[in-house]
């Protein structure tokens, strides 16, 4: 075993442990904020695993998209809402948790046996490494052109949908007695009458 292999094995161990621990933390911790931060840690460790597999474009894209965009948005949403809520204890929580655990274990066992029993066709070609972007680009514009374009249309639809949801136009329906549009009025406490006269 030479130096490179040793480094690879050790970093694989560290990354795998980080993925598992942070993923468990996401699920098990009570505080939503911790879960969100640990989700970022899990994504970054996944990116490290991609680096180990010589897929550096996928790794960088993973960091950019999942950590830099999705996780930041999740955190942003949590912090803008910033609701400190004490969750009421649900009746029969123990039974529910055991049932959930069983279902999860079953799913894990199912996926595990699938991974072990499938005869994977492992390619013996040397990994593309630094030229992986070129290979990916060629595939995007030749044999994967249709899925690529369809995904871009899907993203456009999502973009337009988000704008439509965010920019809801208030249609003036119910006008108050003074003729103001109630939908546009902020709910405010009635202010005390203050004399507007200038006493000087």
């Amino acid at each position: 075993m030479n130096l490179a292999e040793g480094v690879q094995i050790v970093s694989f161990g560290i990354l795998a442990a980080a993925v598992l621990i942070s993923a468990l933390g996401v699920v098990l911790l009570k505080n939503v904020v911790y879960s969100a931060f640990l989700l970022g840690g899990s994504f970054i460790s996944m990116a490290g695993l991609y680096f180990l597999l010589n897929a550096d474009f996928v790794a960088a894209a993973q960091v950019l998209v999942y950590v830099g965009a999705i996780n930041v948005l999740i955190l942003f949403a949590i912090m803008l809402v910033n609701k400190q809520e004490e969750y009421a204890v649900v009746k029969g929580a123990g039974v529910r948790q055991v049932a959930t655990g069983l279902v999860c274990l079953g799913l894990f066992a199912l996926l595990g046996t699938m991974v072990v029993s499938t005869p994977w066709a492992i390619s013996s070609a040397t990994p593309a490494g630094d030229s992986s972007i070129v290979t990916i680009g060629i595939h995007f514009f030749t044999d994967f052109l249709l899925p690529f374009e369809l995904v871009s249309v899907l993203l456009l639809i999502a973009l337009v949908g988000a704008i439509v949801l965010a920019r809801r136009e208030f249609v003036p329906e119910n006008l108050s007695a003074s003729g103001e549009d109630e939908a546009l009025m902020l709910p405010e406490r009635q202010r005390e009458m203050v004399s507007s006269r200038d006493d000087n």
Partner: peptide
């Protein structure tokens, strides 16, 4: 001389806001 080059920088600099949010919170 990583093939990713500038892309790696963009990806890494997108992690920084998480730290800022974390310390702000």
């Amino acid at each position: 001389d990583v093939g990713m080059g500038v892309f790696l920088w963009i990806a890494l600099s997108s992690v920084v806001p998480i730290g800022l949010l974390m310390s702000g919170y």
